[in-house]
Write a protein that binds this DNA or RNA. Structure first.
Length: 646
RNA sequence: GCCGUUGUAGCUCAGUGGUAGAGCACUUCCUUGGUAAGGAAGAGGUCGUGAGUUCAAUUCUCAUCAACGGCUCCA
C-alpha cells in the first residue's frame, strides 16, 4: 500500500508505506541525501530513519534549516555526553538540549572540578567518537524498562524525568556506548559532526530551581565544516571587540564607580553628547508626532504606587522607601513614570475631543535588580526611558498603534537597524482569569495590534500567554551588524492603570468613559539603546551622533594658528571637535584620531593655510584630498543632518 | 540572590612569603616633522577592602566589596 508524500513545493509523490526520510531525500537528489539531517513530518521533526506510515507533508531539513541545526546540536549534546561518560565514569546526566548557538549538557560530576583542560580533553574525545560515525538508534521503551535502565545506571536525574512521563511515550536514543532518555530527533550518525568547540562551563541548578543541587553546565558548539566553526569563532572575537563595555571605556563614554554603587552608570562628557543627541532626535520626532513633553520628579509618595498596584507586586523587590524626618511619610524612587503621568492626565477634566493625550518624558527610573544580573549598560539599576503614555479612546487604539509603529520604525531606520521583527504578546486563551480588563476590549486590542502591524508590513510572531496581566503588547527586536538579536522598543496596551487611577473622559454621549492607556518606549532605555548602538556600529557612530565629529591636525606647531582659526569656525557652526596641537608628527596625530574613531580629520599645513583649505581624511577610508574649508563645511553639514530634519 | 572565576599604575597585563615590574597613556626636554606610533629623561601603585596565620603577607587562610561567565528574576 502506498502513501502520499507532499513536498514543500506542493508536489505529491507516492511512496510505499514505511518509507523513511532518508529514502525520500535520496529520491529527490543525491546532494540532498548527503546533506539531510532530519525531516519535518506534518510540522513535527523526525529522524531520517523513522518510517512514515501515513500520508504526510514533509520537508527535508539540512544545516540551513533551524530544525536541522537543532537536531545537529542536540545530537552533539549526546556526543558530548558519550565523551564525558567515557572520560569520567559514573558521571550523571541532567538535560542536554540544543540552544540558539550550540548546545549544553547539565552534568553531575560528583564534585570533581572541571576546568579548561577538561574541556579540551572532552573535545578531543568527542572528535574521536564522531569519526566512528555511530548511528543514532531510536527505540521505544516502556516506563518500567526505562526506569530499570537508569536505576541500574544510578542516574537520579533521568529517573526523575522519566517518572513525569506517560508510559508509551518514552523513547531512548543510543549511539556508540551511550544511551539517553530523549524524544529526539537526531541526525543519522555522529560523522556529520566535524568541528567541535566547547566554550565554557557554568553552574546551573537542576531544573532551574535554586533549592536543587547545582550541576555543571558545559556549553559547546559544533558544525558540519571546520570553516563554519572558524567563522563562528571569528564572530565571537568580533563581538568581544565590539563589547559596549570595552568601547565605552576606550571612547570615554561612560564609567562605573564602586563608590557610587553597582549598576549606576556615570555618563562621561562624550557619552553625554551621544545621549543628548539621541534625546534631541527623539524629542523632535515626538513633537512632530503630537506628543506633549512633561517632567515629573524622581520620587513619588508610596501611596502613588499603592494606587497603581506596583507596590503590592514589586514593593519587596524595590529600593526601600525614603522617609521624611518629621511626618514620617514614605516615598519611593520611581520605578516607572506611568503613575505620575496618570496624575497629569487627571489634573483636569478631559473630553473625548481632547483624546488622544500623549505625554512624553525622558524619565529616569530606579529598579532594584539582582546583583548577578547587572551587565554594563544593558542591565542597570538606574536608567532613563524614552517613555510616553498615550491616553486614548478604545476606538483610537489601532490608529495610535500605527503611529507608534511608524515612530519606532523611523528610529530604527535613522540609526541603521535594517533588520527587525516584532513579537505580539497575547493572552493565554486557556486561562483568561490571569488578566484584567473586559474580554471584548482584549479581543479588540489584540486584533487591532495585529492589524496595525500588518498594515505597516511588520514581520510579527504572535505568542500566546506572553501578554502582561494588564494588556497585550508589541515588542521590537532588532538584529545588529553581527546578526545578534536585541529586544528594544515596546508598545503596551494597559487597561489596569486607567481603572486604578479612575481616569475618565466625557464622551459625545455626555457619559463618563474610561480611556485606554498605551505605554511605549522606542529606545526602551537610553542606556540599553546606547549599548546596542555601540555594538551595532562598533563605536563608529553616524556623524550626527559622534561625540567628536572632527579633529583638526596641524602638520606642525607653525600651523596651530591656522588650525585654531579652522576650529573656531567649526565650533561657531556647532560642529563638535578639537584641535590636536601637541608637539607630535602628523602620522602620530592621525593614528590617535583614527583610534578614537573620529569621523573626519582635517590636516592643515602650509598649503592649506595659504589657500584657506583643509586636507580631509575620513575615518577608516583615508585621504580624501584638499578642499576649501567652506566647501568641507557645506558637505559636512549635509552629512551630519539629524534624520527627520532639514 | 545563588554557583564559579577574577581583582597589581589611568589602560592592557607580568610577577614574588622578605614591603613591586613591562608596554601604552601622562609630564619635561630635544625635534617642526605631509596621511596609522620620532628620540630622551621623569613622575606615577597603602598589589580591591578588612581580619587571621607568620619574625615577615601583594603572595597563604577567612570574610567582605566589585567585575566577569552562568542560573534565577525583570513594572
Amino acid at each position: 500500500m502506498n502513501i502520499k508524500i507532499t513536498l514543500p513545493d506542493g508536489s505529491i509523490r507516492e511512496f510505499s508505506n514505511g518509507v523513511t526520510g532518508a529514502e525520500i531525500a535520496r529520491s529527490i537528489s543525491e546532494g540532498l541525501a548527503r546533506n539531510a539531517l532530519a525531516i519535518e513530518v506534518n510540522e513535527e521533526i523526525w529522524d531520517l530513519s523513522r518510517p512514515i506510515t501515513s500520508d504526510s507533508k514533509v520537508r527535508i531539513l539540512t544545516w540551513n534549516d533551524a530544525g536541522g541545526k537543532k537536531a545537529f546540536w542536540h545530537s552533539s549534546a549526546h556526543l558530548m555526553a558519550e565523551a564525558l561518560e567515557a572520560l569520567y565514569p559514573g558521571v550523571k546526566f541532567g538535560i542536554g538540549p540544543p540552544i540558539e548557538n550550540g548546545f549544553y549538557y547539565d552534568v553531575d560530576l560528583g564534585g570533581r572540578p572541571f576546568g579548561e583542560d577538561d574541556l579540551i580533553a572532552v573535545e578531543k574525545k568527542m572528535a574521536e567518537l564522531a569519526r566512528k560515525e555511530s548511528r543514532f538508534i531510536r527505540s521505544e521503551v516502556s516506563k518500567k524498562d526505562a526506569l530499570e535502565y537508569f536505576e541500574k545506571k544510578d542516574d537520579p536525574y533521568k529517573i526523575e524525568l522519566i517518572q513525569e512521563l506517560a508510559d508509551g511515550s518514552i523513547t531512548f536514543y543510543q549511539q556508540g556506548n551511550f544511551t539517553d532518555l530523549c524524544k529526539g530527533p537526531h541526525i543519522p550518525h555522529t560523522g556529520f559532526i566535524k568541528a567541535i568547540k566547547l566554550l565554557n562551563v557554568a553552574g546551573a541548578y537542576w531544573r532551574g530551581n535554586e533549592k536543587n543541587k547545582m550541576l555543571t553546565r558545559i556549553y559547546g558548539i559544533t558544525f558540519p565544516k571546520q570553516k563554519d566553526l572558524d567563522d563562528y569563532l571569528l564572530l565571537l572575537e568580533e563581538a568581544k571587540k565590539r563589547d559596549h563595555r570595552k568601547i565605552g571605556k576606550e571612547l570615554e563614554l561612560f564609567t562605573f564607580s564602586e563608590r557610587v554603587g553597582m549598576g549606576l552608570p556615570l555618563w562621561l562628557p562624550k557619552g553625554t553628547i551621544l545621549r543628548e543627541r539621541l534625546e534631541q532626535f527623539m524629542r523632535r520626532a515626538q513633537v512632530k508626532a503630537g506628543y506633549d513633553p512633561v517632567v515629573t520628579p524622581h520620587i513619588g509618595s508610596k501611596m502613588l504606587y499603592v494606587t497603581s498596584g506596583h507596590y503590592q507586586k514589586y514593593g519587596k523587590d524595590s529600593f526601600m522607601p525614603i522617609r521624611t524626618p518629621d511626618e514620617n511619610e514614605e516615598f519611593l524612587l520611581k520605578p516607572m513614570n506611568c503613575p505620575h503621568h496618570c496624575e497629569i492626565y487627571s489634573s483636569k477634566p478631559r473630553s473625548y475631543r481632547d483624546l488622544p493625550v500623549r505625554l512624553a518624558e525622558f524619565g529616569t527610573v530606579y529598579r532594584y535588580e539582582q546583583s548577578g544580573e547587572l551587565h554594563g549598560l544593558t542591565r542597570v539599576r538606574g536608567f532613563t526611558q524614552d517613555d510616553a503614555h498615550i491616553f486614548c479612546r478604545p476606538d483610537q487604539v489601532k490608529e495610535e498603534f500605527i503611529k507608534v509603529i511608524d515612530l519606532v520604525l523611523f528610529v530604527f531606520k535613522s540609526l541603521g537597524f535594517d533588520q527587525y521583527t516584532a513579537q505580539i504578546s497575547l493572552r493565554d486563551p486557556n486561562d483568561k482569569s490571569k488578566y484584567i480588563g473586559e474580554d471584548e476590549l482584549w479581543e479588540r486590542a489584540e486584533r487591532e495590534i495585529q492589524e496595525a502591524a500588518d498594515e505597516r508590513g511588520l514581520k510579527t510572531v504572535a505568542v500566546k500567554g506572553e501578554a502582561a496581566f494588564y494588556g497585550p503588547k508589541l515588542d521590537f527586536m532588532v538584529k545588529d551588524a553581527l546578526g545578534r538579536s536585541w529586544q528594544l522598543g515596546t508598545i503596551q496596551v494597559d487597561y489596569q492603570l486607567p481603572q486604578r487611577f479612575g481616569l475618565e473622559y466625557v464622551g459625545a454621549d455626555n457619559q463618563r468613559h474610561r480611556p485606554v492607556m498605551i505605554h511605549r518606549a522606542p529606545f526602551g532605555s537610553l542606556e540599553r539603546f546606547v549599548a546596542v548602538l555601540i555594538e551595532h556600529c562598533a563605536g563608529n557612530f553616524p556623524l550626527w551622533l559622534a561625540p567628536e565629529q572632527v579633529a583638526v591636525l596641524p602638520i606642525s606647531e607653525r600651523f596651530n594658528a591656522y588650525g585654531n582659526s579652522v576650529m573656531d569656525k567649526l565650533k561657531s557652526l556647532d560642529i563638535r571637535g578639537f584641535i590636536d596641537d601637541r608637539d607630535e608628527k602628523i602620522g602620530r596625530k592621525i593614528r590617535d584620531a583614527e583610534v578614537r574613531k573620529i569621523p573626519y580629520m582635517l590636516i592643515v599645513g602650509e598649503r592649506e593655510a595659504m589657500e584657506g583649505k583643509v586636507a580631509v581624511r575620513k575615518h577608516g577610508a583615508g585621504d580624501q584630498g584638499s578642499v576649501l574649508l567652506d566647501e568641507f563645511i557645506r558637505k559636512f553639514q549635509e552629512e551630519a543632518a539629524v534624520p527627520g530634519e532639514g
